[in-house]
Design a protein around this nucleic acid. Structure first.
Lengths: 198, 198, 198, 198
DNA sequence: TATGAATGAGTATTCATTCAT
DNA sequence: GATGAATGAATACTCATTCAT
């Protein structure tokens, strides 16, 4: 299958670099091909069209991303620990590959509605992990039993995503991973001062 | 000044409709001009270029948006009330103008990096309001004194924004405004079960 | 309407020259635009696409072609005279515009099936004229009353067309118009030696 | 020599099918190779390039075509009989292989000027047969001694060719072979009513 | 002010052909 | 001989912007 051949990954990695450095709209197929060290036409032996490079890129990268997170999470018993692991991993993986961070936080969102929906489908794999953490927290009694899973997921993902995007737009002028514990505490306890259990 | 003339607003309103209905990439200047009932060239008497329409659109709409919110907030004493007011207003204003919601949550984000930075600058006006709520909460003792304002702002904005985007992508199949209280509670108390004050 | 504007004819005339000199497949839109003295984009203000240039070209030219022939024919009483007039006019009009002859006999036929059908529809206007001559000949008793109109039309058009094509492929090395009388005689009397009426 | 090896004919037959079914411009080398059951590169062991497939195809098919006709003609004494034999054979051979008819009447003509000249050279073998019939008719006194051989040939070939093309474009909705006698009569006697020999 | 005809830069994709195996 | 992965040249069309009226 094409997806296992070396040139497939070679082109995807080239795309990440080219898009991060030039922006989505200035990333011509010929530029990606040149960076990958292949001919323009070769791209089309591995991808249906230019859009397909983007969706595949996101699939590949997010797949590895989720796998790494899932493995780490599996070792944790408490939902709170799982959440911290998720945040730390999310932050550290993107901090370790700034090109990828730029692509996922800024460039990939410039796609049209149809492509956006395809990307959203891929993203669902990540949201499933978030949901499973929330549910395990509710079951174990760590999280409020009145929690709406969808809303909680939106808070967790929205907060993490916004934090990374701000960091990227500020050109990584501060330590992202170092924010993990604080973000984790915010998500668990919110802004308010803790109230006594009635 | 141009910004007060009727055609200025006429073109901006036309742009909102055209972009919401056709998507960002299918919203040619000529289409916006037609919708506004002016000639293509007339656009350029009021806007420097196409990008300028978008930034101006966001400025105009967000300006009114913030103004409305600010007025409501001024009547509240508690930070928690202010935050609930912010959320309710944010949700209700976008729920009342779905065209605008589509444009701000989906279409405007398809812009390139440079335009994104200009739009972010405009957005700062909104974030200032969020910051002031957080600070007032910390001062009044309602919010934790250890709160990092930037992170708290990212959680609040990230959560609200993600909630609206999800609602838009689900084609408004549920009541957005009705989620306000739950979202508010999440932001104040987080996912965790409240702990007794030591 | 666009078809009456000067640039419409200007582009069509440019297309005839460019296609005759470079061949259909080497006649890029940019080349036609340059020859017409307009920008590439201007072409698309007058024609839907490249194919549309060809069909319009054929329509315009054949329209004038038929009109000229029809006028001359109207002055003739005998079908035989009408047929001679048709042949002479057909030959002389193409002999007078070799570029057009090359385009109609060679280049226009390189089109795909769909375009070919559109061109054939235009050609029907010419075949109607041929048919009317045949029918008037049958009515007047000049032509055999057993004549199958469709077959006779195919002989007349096939012979004229083949004669012109051969002349074009031989690069006009002989006088085409001078062949009119002989071709006319062939079409009227065939190859055979005239037989006495029984 | 390559031309006698089985794959040579195999590729040509594949080309006829592919071109008839997909049209000239949609008949990629890879498609022909697939139909022939060989690899793309194998095509180039038997043909210089894509054009060469077409010219060879026409040579092979026309060669057999002419041979069949010539054999039948040899048995006839009168030129008129020879002509009828030619027409009947021409029609029946193409009616028996509609794929081939589509290719020769429509698809092969979409070629560029240079290829057209090469195809015309091949066609000369057929025109030689027509010429020989005409000349024998003149010699035997069956045909007018004033006949211009080239013009007569153009009428005969033009009429036959136009008749077949019309039949193909009408998707063989009527019996082509059944037209032979009428076409033959037209070519011998023309449209006019026969005149008494003076 | 307002118009809208004209401009022309910019790019994804196909497919005949090659050549290392 | 046979393969098929890789090549890379080549081109129609769109649309933001201008400027003569």
């Amino acid at each position: 299958m094409n997806r296992t051949k070396p040139k497939y990954k070679q082109i995807i990695d080239a795309a990440v670099i080219v898009i991060a450095e030039n922006g989505y709209h200035q990333s011509q197929v010929s530029k990606i091909a040149k960076q990958a060290g292949v001919a323009d036409g070769t791209i089309y032996l591995y991808f249906k069209n230019k859009e397909d490079i983007l969706v595949s890129l996101f699939q590949e990268k997010l797949g590895a991303f989720i796998e790494t997170i899932q493995e780490e999470i599996n070792g944790k018993s408490f939902a709170a620990d799982k959440l911290l692991t998720l945040i730390e991993n999310h932050f550290s993986q993107l901090a370790a590959d700034f090109h990828l961070a730029v692509v996922t936080q800024l460039e990939l969102r410039q796609s049209n509605k149809e492509l956006r929906h395809r990307i959203n489908d891929v993203l669902k794999g990540y949201l499933v992990v978030v949901d499973s953490i929330i549910k395990s927290g509710i079951e174990s009694g760590e999280f409020s039993e009145e929690l709406d899973v969808r809303l909680a997921r939106q808070m967790i993902f929205g907060t993490i995503d916004e934090t990374v995007t701000t960091w990227v737009m500020n050109e990584q002028r501060y330590d992202l991973v170092g924010l993990s514990k604080q973000v984790h505490h915010l998500l668990i306890s919110g802004c308010g001062v803790a109230q006594p259990v009635k």
